[in-house]
């Protein structure tokens, strides 16, 4: 399951011909230099509440990758036929349809996770990443690069989600993906799970610190916003 960080480079190497240099940049930029959450400040909304455990976070990330990729593809295919004045409504309908598909699939095959994610699956619709990428990229680019841009942004979002979830689950309940990681003898010696990690503010602290570290390493991001 833990393929979240791996797919981008692997895929690139396998199908080199389709991936010109520019396309690879489109795919890779959102992972760090142009990360949707920490740099573009998009899509923080629906994400953070699902990061108490790794498993729902992973599934949420997959759902968002699916929606961003295909909504980018569809809008890019339609970009010459959509009148500018009503484009927001058209975009919302496309996104809402894709999200409905995700939601129904989750309900059918992973009911317990779907219950845990509750309203947050539906909130992918208003996740600013999807709208933001449609407005900023898909409306002005060909379908294939748009698709890659969607995948890249979805993965960039997923990375943050999984990083936050790993920290919160490991320190909050001593497990990863539901398996006990912190051994029993540690508890016997007096180790206690950090209750704060289970509460909403912890996600904000982790992202705040993540941004701090990222901007300390990558100086050109300082004072972006």
């Amino acid at each position: 399951m833990a393929v979240e960080t791996a797919p981008a480079p692997v895929v690139e190497k396998k199908k080199e011909p389709l991936f010109s240099k520019k396309n690879i940049r489109t795919l890779r930029d959102p992972l760090d230099d142009n990360n949707p959450i920490t740099v573009q400040v998009l899509g923080i909304c629906s994400a953070l509440a699902v990061t108490v455990q790794v498993k729902p976070a992973l599934i949420m990330a997959l759902g968002v990758i699916f929606v961003t990729a295909f909504s980018n593809l569809i809008i890019s295919l339609l970009r010459h036929t959509i009148p500018t004045r009503v484009r927001i409504i058209v975009q919302l309908i496309v996104i809402a349809t894709l999200v409905t598909i995700v939601d129904q699939v989750l309900r059918a095959y992973m009911f317990d996770v779907s219950k845990k994610l509750s309203v947050f699956v539906g909130l992918i619709i208003t996740n600013c990443i999807v709208m933001g990428r449609l407005e900023a990229f898909a409306l002005a680019n060909k379908p294939w690069p748009s698709f890659l841009d969607g995948v890249g942004n979805g993965v960039g979002y997923g990375i943050i989600l999984v990083v936050v979830a790993v920290f919160r689950e490991l320190f909050g309940s001593g497990t990863l993906m539901g398996y006990q990681v912190v051994p029993q003898w540690a508890y016997d010696m007096g180790y206690v799970n950090n209750g704060l990690m289970m509460l909403p503010p912890a996600a904000l602290f982790i992202i705040g610190v993540y941004i701090w570290i990222q901007r300390s390493i990558n100086k050109k991001l300082v004072n972006v916003s």
Partner: peptide
Amino acid sequence: IPAPLQGLGIAMIITGLMGMAFL
């Protein structure tokens, strides 16, 4: 505020602190 933390970073952490207060 340290330069890399300015803007978004500190806003996140403050929101977290406010969230704790609201708890």
